[in-house]
């Protein structure tokens, strides 16, 4: 496994080097994994890496890029919108010469056009946003402040908002609210992996059996 980077376009017209984890051995098949968004990205990261290790063992290259404004990125999340993440995913796909794509959860909202692949646990942007807003209302209430979810959403679409520690621009909120998961990718159902979805876990967890099942399915599907 290598830590590498890719040139990522930013909204101000500049470009930044964003990190990516890569297993690259010059294979003919290269899978780009688009990570889940926000807190779910952390909860799904272990599964992503476990699947990548297994695919590497099967001779399939794979890349997991950081989206700008996440992980080690220097970009200010508060200046970005969903379209910038889509541009980043496209830039990573082209830089690494991806032949296939796997979108995890909200990653399905920013899939590059034209690549065959799969979506696992696809979710509407509005649903992710609703959960984040609800978490904020609940933690505010714990702190003795009453907030209203609908009111917060309206305000967020105009002025942006901070949710679960993520500073979201107004454009990010508007685009999230409207975003639908990519419909061209084939869906991977939870039943195929067995167990229960790791993004739902209150505490981040690993599941070797799920990683085995997902990697086995992808290996067969990619090899054709």
């Amino acid at each position: 496994m290598n830590v590498t980077s890719y040139p990522c376009p930013l909204p101000d017209g500049s470009s930044a080097e964003e990190y990516a984890l890569a297993f690259k051995r010059g294979a003919a098949q290269r899978l780009l994994i688009i990570p889940a968004l926000f807190d779910e990205g952390h909860r799904m990261r272990r599964l992503c890496i476990d699947v990548m290790r297994r695919l590497d063992g099967s001779g399939i290259d794979c890349i997991l890029p950081d989206l700008p404004g996440t992980n080690e990125s220097k970009a200010d999340l508060g200046t970005l919108a969903l379209a910038d993440w889509a541009a980043a995913a496209s830039a990573a796909a082209s830089h690494f010469g991806a032949t296939h794509v796997l979108a995890i959860r909200g990653g399905g909202l920013v899939v590059p056009a034209g690549l065959p692949g799969w979506r696992y646990g696809p979710v509407k942007g509005a649903s992710l946003l609703r959960t984040l807003i609800r978490a904020r209302v609940l933690s505010s209430r714990d702190a003795g402040r009453e907030e209203n979810g609908e009111g917060l959403l309206i305000e967020a679409q105009e002025h942006g908002i901070e949710l679960a520690g993520y500073r979201l621009s107004a454009a990010m909120v508007q685009q999230m609210q409207a975003a639908q998961p990519n419909a061209e990718l084939a869906e991977i159902e939870q039943d195929l992996l067995g167990g229960s979805p790791l993004w739902l876990r209150a505490e981040p967890d690993a599941d070797a059996a799920q990683a085995d099942a997902l990697a086995a399915y992808l290996t067969m599907a990619i090899r054709g």
């Binding site: 807190d39 649903s127 609703r130 959960t131 984040l132 609800r134 978490a135 904020r136 609940l138 933690s139 714990d142 679960a164 739902l200 209150a202 505490e203």
Partner: peptide, 18 residues
């Protein structure tokens, strides 16, 4: 249950809705 923080409760409620 120590695992249930506000983010987990929010996820639980959204999952119940769905």
């Amino acid at each position: 249950l120590p695992e249930l923080d506000s983010m987990a409760v929010a996820g639980l409620l959204t999952e119940m809705e769905d």
